[in-house]
Design a protein around this nucleic acid. Structure first.
Lengths: 225, 225
DNA sequence: TGGCGCGTGTGACCTGCGCCACTGGATAGG
DNA sequence: CCTATCCAGTGGCGCAGGTCACACGCGCCA
């Protein structure tokens, strides 16, 4: 792992070389293969992770075994921040959606390193605050939007973060099965499939295994709100 | 406002008198009557508020005008913390559910006062982290629970925070109309009414205007999960 | 190379719940 | 005191979406 990769994380993008090197010193690296679980909801643990490569899903399981995804995270994004300030068991299960690697840092080391770097501390808080805002948005969507709307919104979000624009549209290699997509938007696999098929039949997008090509972003965006 | 009232807030309960007095110095007080709005979603503002007395609702309005409540807050609870770390327009509208009074504090004053009081700063972060956890829980409920389940859950939560136990049950003066309760759980007023009526007919609770008496907490709890 | 599992695509139900319509009681304002 | 408004209660209708059932293709391993 070198400083460059670390700087992918918005949080650390502005660090000078000295600071980045110091941080790296106390970080360790982990690798997972698709489907592997990093930790489970309920586990103890106080490490903060930063995705270096690959994608992970953050999910929770209901008492009757059904699953619901809180987020899909990719390179540069972090997770486990909750346990930094609100000690206690992990509130979600983290599973690799593709082969992935992470840098991680103990609560303690992070806080020590953060001392004297109030800018970064601020940034960290802003991230948490942003997450809270986003969680509230998701709530509103669950109440107000129908399933196709939520699917459209999810695709646009994934496109923002993982999409590559080509001349035939925005290629979004989300690496999710439709089942996972369904868990992400809080709907059944079948309904999500039908929504996707409908979008495709309108020419808004093209379906590919574990990915989509969005051909009419505007239409999709209008369907999302 | 005196130091005692301030100490109702868990965040400030452990302050010594000097610290509390210092804090009070930079706080100002506001009063509202039932139905009055403190600020709207989208407004500018960076004050942190603490409810001293009464109850408020934190809500957002969808593009087509429908409303959705994020939380009901009572004495000792605070809001507006988001704008502390994530500057930008207010993300929710705050309305008084009963006559209410608040202490408030500017972003700037708070941060200044917080310097040298890392314990309190930590506590503040823990509150935000807790809110995030809770928001995620609500998401899961919206996905997995039916309306009666969410109503039961909401009642139990309100009971925890505002209930008074008597020998005929737990009296919960929530001060919410059924319409508001419905917005809180993300359902229609009618459906919530029917759920409540059903609970009442089973003898789990008794309905009173803007309040309920829970007579069988256990049953209700079992219905909630 | 044949079978098996996994992801996807699609139709046929069934039902929870949103929306509408109306009633009756309570509260407030002229 | 009468009317207007708000809130609670209840029935009926329609539909979005969950569940079930099944079919197809593709990759993997024995």
């Amino acid at each position: 792992m070198d400083n460059e990769v670390l700087r992918q994380a918005p949080l650390f993008s502005a660090l000078d070389d000295e600071a980045a090197t110091a941080l790296r010193g106390s970080m360790s690296e982990t690798r997972l293969r698709r489907g592997d679980v990093l930790f489970h909801e309920g586990d103890a643990g106080d490490r903060l992770y930063i995705v270096m490569d690959g994608k992970i899903k953050l999910g929770r399981t209901s008492s009757d075994g059904r699953e619901n995804l809180l987020a899909i995270l990719g390179p540069g994004q972090m997770f486990g921040e909750l346990s930094l300030f609100d000690p206690g068991p992990r509130s979600a299960t983290v599973t690799a959606v593709t082969d992935a690697s992470f840098a991680s840092l103990s609560h303690e080391d992070l806080l020590k390193w953060l001392e004297g770097r109030p800018q970064v501390a601020r940034g960290l808080l802003a991230q948490i605050a942003g997450r809270l805002r986003k969680a509230n948005d998701v709530n509103a969507d669950l109440v107000f939007s129908d399933v196709p709307g939520r699917v459209a919104k999810a695709l646009l979000d994934l496109a923002d973060r993982f999409g590559r624009t080509a001349d035939d549209g925005v290629h979004v290699h989300h690496d999710l099965t439709q089942e996972e997509l369904a868990q992400l938007v809080g709907a059944s696999r079948e309904t999500v499939n039908k929504a996707l098929a409908d979008f495709a039949s309108r020419g808004w997008l093209r379906l590919e295994p574990r990915s989509v090509v969005i051909m009419d972003v505007d239409r999709l965006r209008r369907r999302a709100r």
